[in-house]
Nucleic acid binder design. Structure first.
Lengths: 347, 347
DNA sequence: ACATAAAGTGTGCTCGAACACAAAATAAAA
DNA sequence: TTTTATTTTGTGTTCGAGCACACTTTATGT
């Protein structure tokens, strides 16, 4: 498999490399005769332009801004640092700069502020976790008008201006939790779907998980679980959830729709006589600790590190080698128990 | 963050780019004075050589041969084609050629034959699934003597001459199966560890899985399962396994150590009154079909596609950009149920 | 037929690293 | 001091794609 260069093609077609270049890039100023000669050669061989040479000639520096929630406030985002570092090291010598900006996940003002700052930097692309729907939409439009590509991770939001999305199918992840729950709890018992610290704005992903979870159980023919939804907030010491557990005798499982699963495990410690299975989300240290003790049975891994890494590398390869960007990249939904979490942490 | 070139450094140090080049590559012929000047500049700035330019200048074509079992004979290897295609498309325009050679996984002669052919091709690297221990060892030595890098996937074998290994921790995967089995079967019941079509030579990975599985149960304090190992072969219609199931009344689960899990599910169809949980390996079409029907409860995903892809991309990046190759890359061990297999198939 | 405009074609330089080779500077020998 | 040997330094070319610019050929108008 010989590697052909533009020079080779020029020689084969009996024209100059300039003409070949014009044909390949369709910029006209080529006679019928020359066009035919070059096209004939191109049809016969498989020309693969040398991407190294192209990129070297181009020799542009690209800036990608990553907008993420501060991991000190929500530890779910902690692994993203590793994902960014990995992408950074991989592409820094190829002319890609990654510039991380953190915002407070509890404050829309902080989110808007960071977006303003990033807009001033005028990067080539932005990758962000769009925690606040309205504010994110507004910012995305602004980026689009400034010809800045926008990648979205973690939660999908609809918009014409978004280049791509990297994340998971949240409804399906609810179904997975339901299937697991079905396997480890007795039929016809009661199960609680616990939404912890739900805020009005970014609660849609909790709803999607609940929908998937309920869908699964509704389609079961051989049993009839009793599902109850419970909203509970930290400022109230999760009293609603505590009361729900306290007032029933038939609860066999709790599905926690967020990474704060460990909070539920902690509450359950108050009821040593009950056997309640817990399925929740994400490999936080505290979650893993309860997974090891057996208080939490399964976790579903949303893989934030991989999400940001994939988003960044798609953008980088697009800038450097003109690779197409997949509009949507859905990550596998990993089931985690006490024995396999470690194999994910080392990734 | 300015990008410095050799020319920049030369100017800053007041020498020519040739001198800077000699200092950076430590090829001597540089005076004390010049060396000092250049080193001073290098210490002050963070010089990142442009990998595109380096690779373009190098402009060498690398050939990687992939030696894999014929997927028509063992469908476990089917996904590898997609992994190879992915790596091929990613690197073909950067001067990497991937040349796949299939062998018959039931024939050492076929394996040796293919190795001889590959040795004649004299590629820059070989990546293989070393199904036959002795034969693989011999071939690896031959490659090493011809200065050909050797990557190993799927099952680790020890050798000085191996560049790297991509695969899974098989003992841990046995432990994962055990933990799952514990969750879905009644305490103190009987569990069969089924080795299907075990050949003497490549059986070590089955043993490792069994060891992990048994280890987990041995360390359980709160229960005492009865574990039995059962070897069974197709040419005998898996009679040993059939008899084992037939002769006991207390079997609650079967752990199948290979991708032929569906064969066990098929046997179980003969015992409609028994409730036997099955945990096995790999996303074969037939396995998934039984997973959907509920006959198989969990599968563990060994991810052959990712294994070959990672092996290939590590080699490619090493050749192109001189990136270091990790000696050992252990993939996460994915737990699969009827609801999340689809998210893995689309990867 | 000749001037002028338009269309088509080829040459040469750039990107940054790497290295060959020539040129200059210094050291050693005469 | 001059010659010769040795070390040190700088220049120029290459890799392949891309594009500016100059140059040549063909077309149009008077």
């Amino acid at each position: 498999m010989k590697k052909y260069t533009i020079k080779d093609i020029a020689q084969l077609a009996g024209v100059s490399k300039g003409t070949v270049d014009r044909v390949i890039h369709k910029r006209g100023k080529v006679s019928e005769k020359a066009l035919e000669k070059v096209n004939k050669v191109l049809a016969e061989i498989d020309y693969q332009p040398n991407l190294m040479a192209r990129s070297l000639k181009n020799n542009k520096d690209y800036i990608i801004c990553a907008l993420l929630p501060n991991p000190d406030i929500d530890p779910y985002w902690q692994p993203c640092k590793k994902g960014i570092d990995q992408a950074f090291n991989e592409y820094k010598s190829l002319g890609i700069t990654i510039d991380t900006h953190l915002f407070d996940p509890t404050s829309t003002a902080s989110f808007l502020e960071v977006n303003t700052k990033v807009l001033e930097i005028n990067p080539d692309a932005v990758i962000m976790a769009p925690l606040f729907y309205n504010e994110a939409k507004k910012s995305i439009t602004a980026y689009s008008e400034a010809n800045i590509l926008v990648s979205i991770i973690n939660n999908r939001i609809g918009s014409e201006d978004i280049t791509n999305f990297v994340g998971q199918d949240l409804m399906q992840s609810g179904r997975i939790a339901a299937r697991l729950m079905e396997m480890i709890t007795p039929k016809d018992s009661e199960i609680i779907i616990a939404h912890l610290d739900e805020f009005f704005h970014n609660a849609s992903f909790m709803q999607q998980k609940e929908k998937g979870f309920r869908d699964y159980f509704e389609n079961l023919l051989t049993s009839d679980y009793n599902l109850k939804t419970c909203n509970s907030i930290e400022s109230n010491e999760y009293k609603t959830l505590f009361d729900a557990i306290n007032s029933s005798t038939n609860i066999s499982g709790i599905f926690v729709t967020t990474s704060k699963t460990y909070k539920v495990a902690k509450i359950i410690e108050n009821f040593p006589d009950l056997s309640i299975k817990i399925i929740g989300y994400d490999l936080l240290e505290k979650n893993i600790s309860y997974l090891n003790s057996g208080a939490i049975d399964f976790l579903i891994h949303q893989n934030p590190k991989q999400q940001i890494y994939l988003g960044l590398s798609q953008l980088a390869e697009h800038f450097l080698f003109d690779k197409p960007i997949a509009e949507e990249k859905l990550l596998p939904i990993d089931i985690i128990n006490s024995e396999n979490y470690n194999s994910y942490l080392n990734q």
